[in-house]
């Protein structure tokens, strides 16, 4: 498949104008509509930003060889999570079944046959994402797999502003691995940034892992706690966005 590859956007990204550019390039009507909904300007205070906590469960970490198997999301604001907007789908991967683990996180092949393919849920996902800033823990998975899937289905690029709760956690606890001498001096590894461990530090309850919606909810709650801990309602959204330019 040949497709137009847009150059990497400069950083920090001016998302509203970036969305204008992408909208013009997009061919698929659903993708076009997504960009048309626009993006919040970088100086928007947190209290005015609608967020969508999103989690994808995949068969592995490589978007080239692995597939999306479930999608969960839940909308939120800086101070509350809205359970009414929560959705969850188990999706049927497109790849040759034998390449994929027989049982992925409790989802068996026979059950999966009854599930929709990713292309049938994509419109609903895009609709939910429209106008929202995405929140995810370790957002590389969500970005890369979504871009790959959208590119394959439509040939269009999918880029969107994202807040990564793991990256925000790493600002508070920069990764530090002491050498032998430092260890001898009593220094310790920086605390784990994994979702469950980060949540524990904020007195958030333990959840069963590997359910896309539960993980989205877990990230959303972690984000509520991080906002209270490290930001104010007037902090501009640009201060929270994932700092890396998007790559497909």
């Amino acid at each position: 498949m040949t497709r137009f590859k847009s150059p990497d956007p400069p950083f920090p990204v001016d998302w509203p104008s970036r969305f204008d550019v992408l909208e013009k390039q997009a061919k698929d009507p659903a993708i076009k509509a997504f960009y048309q909904a626009g993006s919040v300007p970088g100086d928007t205070p947190l209290k005015q930003v609608p967020f969508l906590a999103l989690d994808l469960e995949t068969t592995g970490l490589n978007p080239q060889t692995d597939a999306i198997i479930s999608v969960g999301f839940i909308p939120m604001y800086h101070d509350r999570i809205l359970c009414g907007g929560a959705r969850h789908w188990v999706v049927r991967p497109d790849q040759n079944r034998s390449d994929i683990q027989t049982v992925i996180h409790g989802i068996t092949h026979s059950r999966m046959d009854a599930c929709p393919r990713f292309d049938t849920i994509l419109p609903q996902l895009l609709k939910a994402m429209a106008g929202h800033v995405v929140v995810a823990h370790y957002s590389r998975i969500e970005q890369e797999f979504l871009c790959k899937a959208v590119a394959e289905l439509t040939g269009d690029d999918l880029e969107f502003p994202i807040v990564d709760t793991m990256e925000i956690e790493s600002r508070k606890h920069p990764v530090f691995r002491p050498n032998l001498f430092q260890r001898w001096m009593g220094e310790k590894n920086s605390p784990s940034l994994r979702l469950a461990h980060a949540r524990e530090r904020y007195n958030l309850p333990p959840y069963r892992p590997h359910h896309a919606l539960t993980d989205a909810l877990a990230a959303a709650e972690l984000f509520l706690a991080q906002i209270k801990d490290q930001f104010t309602v007037d902090t501009p959204i640009s201060a929270l966005l994932y700092p890396q330019p998007l790559k497909t």
Binding site: C83, L204, E221
Partner: peptide, 9 residues
């Protein structure tokens, strides 16, 4: 679905 979740320090 009618529930909202909030966090208080």
């Amino acid at each position: 679905p009618q529930i909202e979740v909030s966090y208080y320090q």
